[in-house]
Design a protein around this nucleic acid. Structure first.
Length: 496
RNA sequence: GGCCCCAUCGUCUAGAGGCCUAGGACGCCGCCCUCUCAAGGCGGAGACAGGGAUUCGAAUUCCCUUGGGGCUACCA
């Protein structure tokens, strides 16, 4: 029981679920499921200035959408709650008292290192460089009597860890091996703020210990924090968990992925019409490999084959093109009805003014477009002319490419005539009408097809035109041909 | 600046001394199919950062250089 594997994902609600965070959550989740362990969700909301409830909900929703279910968490409870750090302050005070009693921390009365709270994006400048290079704070050398006196006077003090500057600290990392930090590289650091609140490194240790976390799997940006946490474990006499620092995800400019990089939150992908399964598969392969050449892996396979040994050490660049490809692969596996339902769900979001959105119509459009797009949203974008009643505005490319010939108007008129006379407007019926027309005139069907495409879709490219016409229906098709005919009569298309 | 991590095709990666004239996938480029697109088929270009060392033999081990990244808050 005690050696049951327990991991956690500990986001801070200062933003929505980031793909980097999602990938960290995924690796933790896979590790837990692979080992029959437990996956704990903990909210690290000790930064009260930047937290927002909305973000917490968004993170939960994102995880659920991806299918990363947790065994314990703020919303469902568990044996080691509460699961929000803001609700665990008493635990931290207790641990802090222990540290104080054992002489591992000292009161720090400094006030000159207030963080710049103006903008959360701001990076610390070098103005406190001198302070930061100092291994310890002057307060550490304060006479006990002076210290007591100032405390008695009610002067607020932070608690700072008294780090032994002669000791090297080694982090044993499951992915990177032993990482040693030389003596003196870890300065005395704050553990409890002046307002009494526990700081990240301290709260994390306290929580991971009391929640019986056995493996801490987190982003590499935390590697440099680990010696501090190790020091706290030692001071408290606690056994530290195993650590595994996974490589971070970079943007295409090779920088840490940030909100400036376009779509970086998982809910962005949801609204862009990605399938959660595809995102999960893609994220799993960012930094992890099953060891063979498989690219498309089911959740079951991922769980079965996931090991930390299969995680690479180097950072990975997020490649949207490969994600798109993968999404298409997953779209191929979705039943047509389900796909149509997804389109119907997204349609009001992406095209609130869609005029034609009845289920049978959406289903036909989806079936036609699905094989030539990479996301659900693209069905709606590329097939916009299916959802509108007004004739599409032809693109300049479509006009110059397919309507520049002098006899375009004549051909279009002939097509119109043929479509009026078509026995029926099924795909076969439309095709018979157009091909019959071409045959009668001894020309290639393409000469009629392309102008018709422009009339019906406004685009130079589209799905098969017979299908398009059939779905649109005779009335709409004729109206669109008339519209283009009018347009060409008023302003002849430019020569190509 | 200091400390730490990392380094195979443009990108994600396989590779744990000979199986590597380095494999796969995305992307890219041709050709075929074809009403355009997509899909599909066939073919192609494309990498072990550099230098030392160890070894009979290094993509694989060690060192240095270079490059990239992370951390360096009373943020997480």
């Amino acid at each position: 029981m005690t050696d049951k594997i327990r991991v956690r994902f500990a986001p801070s609600p200062t933003g929505y679920l980031h793909v980097g965070g999602a990938r960290t959550a995924l690796f933790n989740w896979l590790f837990a499921r692979h080992n029959g362990g437990e996956f704990v969700l903990r909210v690290e909301d000790t930064d009260t200035a930047r937290n927002r409830d909305e973000f917490e909900r968004g993170i939960f929703d994102g995880l659920r959408w991806l299918g990363l279910t947790w065994d314990e968490g703020p919303d469902i409870g568990g044996a080691f709650g509460p699961y929000r750090q803001s609700e665990r302050q008493a635990l931290y005070r207790e641990a802090a008292e222990k540290l104080r009693a054992s002489g591992h921390v000292y009161e720090c009365f400094c006030t000159d290192t207030e963080p710049d709270v103006q903008s959360s994006e701001s990076v610390p400048t070098d103005r406190t460089a001198a302070d930061r290079t100092a291994a310890s704070c002057p307060c550490r050398a304060l006479e006990p009597a002076v210290r007591l006196e100032r405390m008695a006077a009610g002067e607020p003090a932070a608690l700072r860890m008294a780090v032994d500057p002669t000791l090297a600290i080694t982090v044993v990392d499951l992915i990177r091996g032993d990482v040693t930090f030389p003596p003196g590289t870890v300065p005395d650091f704050i553990v409890v703020k002046r307002d009494g609140g526990a700081l990240y490194n301290f709260a994390v240790v306290s929580d991971d210990h009391s929640m019986r976390i056995t493996h801490v799997i987190r982003g590499e940006e935390h590697l440099a924090n680990t010696p501090k946490q190790l020091l706290i474990y030692e001071a408290l006499g606690w056994q530290p968990p195993a650590f595994a620092h996974i490589p971070i995800i970079l943007n295409e400019q090779r920088r840490k992925l940030s909100k400036r990089d376009g779509a970086t939150f998982v809910n962005d992908y949801e609204t862009m019409g990605f399938l959660p399964q595809a995102l999960v598969n893609f994220l799993a392969l960012l930094g992890w490999s099953p060891g063979d050449n498989r690219e498309i892996l089911s959740i079951e396979e991922m769980i079965r084959d996931f090991t930390l040994a299969g995680v690479v050490k180097h950072p990975a660049i997020f490649d949207p093109a490969k994600l798109a490809w993968m999404n298409k692969e997953y779209m191929k596996q979705v039943a047509p009805d389900d796909l149509a339902h997804m389109v119907a769900t997204l349609l009001p979001v992406l095209r609130p003014n869609a005029a034609r959105k009845d289920a049978p119509h959406v289903a036909r459009v989806t079936a036609l477009l699905a094989e030539r797009v990479r996301t659900i949203a693209e069905i709606i974008e590329h097939g916009a002319y299916f959802f509108d009643t007004d004739p599409p505005e032809p693109t300049s490319e479509a006009l110059s490419k397919h309507c520049a010939a002098p006899d375009t108007v004549g051909r279009l008129a002939a097509v119109r005539d043929a479509l009026v006379k078509a026995d029926d407007f099924s795909v076969a019926g439309v095709e018979a009408a157009i091909r019959g027309l071409a045959e009668a005139n001894g020309t290639k069907a393409a000469t009629y097809i392309h102008p018709l495409r422009v009339a019906l879709t406004g685009q130079a490219v589209s799905p098969g035109i017979f299908e398009v016409a059939s779905i649109l229906g005779r009335d709409v098709a004729l109206a669109r041909i008339d519209a283009l005919l009018n347009r060409l009569a008023l302003a002849p298309a430019p020569r190509s």
